[in-house]
Write a protein that binds this DNA or RNA. Sequence first.
DNA 1: AATAAAATTAGTAATCATTACTGATTTGAG
DNA 2: CTCAAATCAGTAATGATTACTAATTTTATT
Lengths: 122, 122
Amino acid sequence: MKNYSRQREAILEVLRSTDTHPTASWIYERVREKIPNISLGTVYRNLTVLSENGDILTINVGDGQERYDGNTAAHLHLRCTGCGEIYDAFLKSDPFRDLISEEGFIPEAAVYVVRGICKNCK
Amino acid sequence: MKNYSRQREAILEVLRSTDTHPTASWIYERVREKIPNISLGTVYRNLTVLSENGDILTINVGDGQERYDGNTAAHLHLRCTGCGEIYDAFLKSDPFRDLISEEGFIPEAAVYVVRGICKNCK
DNA sequence: AATAAAATTAGTAATCATTACTGATTTGAG
DNA sequence: CTCAAATCAGTAATGATTACTAATTTTATT
């Protein structure tokens, strides 16, 4: 296991302590409670590194900014176009695994996003 | 069927005549061959409208710009981190349909992106 | 056909999330 | 301890996308 910097560990901890899908700015504000002078650029850089390392997921739901997810297990993101909420829907197994391997493709990270209307908004 | 403007029809036609996943700029250049003075803003606006209407898909594979897909059938997008190519993998049926309906969610569009290494790059 | 209202456009300016850059600081290996 | 590599805070720059405006086109109504 690699040794991450204090800043990187703090970012990862914030992300793992929520089940929402926060933006870089939201994470930045939270980490500042622990490391007040951390730079926003540091947050962005580490989110990129963490995502490339497979520690987190980078999710784009089409609302103008990237979101990040501390849960890297394959799951659906259901974004309601009414309220903007993002719901998780977990899978017992990744139904695409066989299809992906048929293509000779070695997967690193999977992001599934479904746009629609949630039960509260219909 | 709705009557779309000449510009909107041309954008849709360009998008349906390729099996790649072009960016707005690429589409803009292609449409300019037919409508030389079309504005880039018009391309963006109509891509948004077409996506909201369900005529096309907006896909973010994490390379810094949105991409668009004229094929709205549920399918995987396999993006190789080696060469950047985006491969399609088609499904016989959407394996998430039951799960989505269990959540009481009414889906409008589904975008599935898998990052990894393609067989040519490994 | 004439008229008014609504939708769409071309062109340009503005936005803002993200990235790039800088010199300083920290970390780890030998 | 020493050097090189990694990372940092702070700030400036980037560039894809959106917003704006006045003009044009389309649609509906009489």
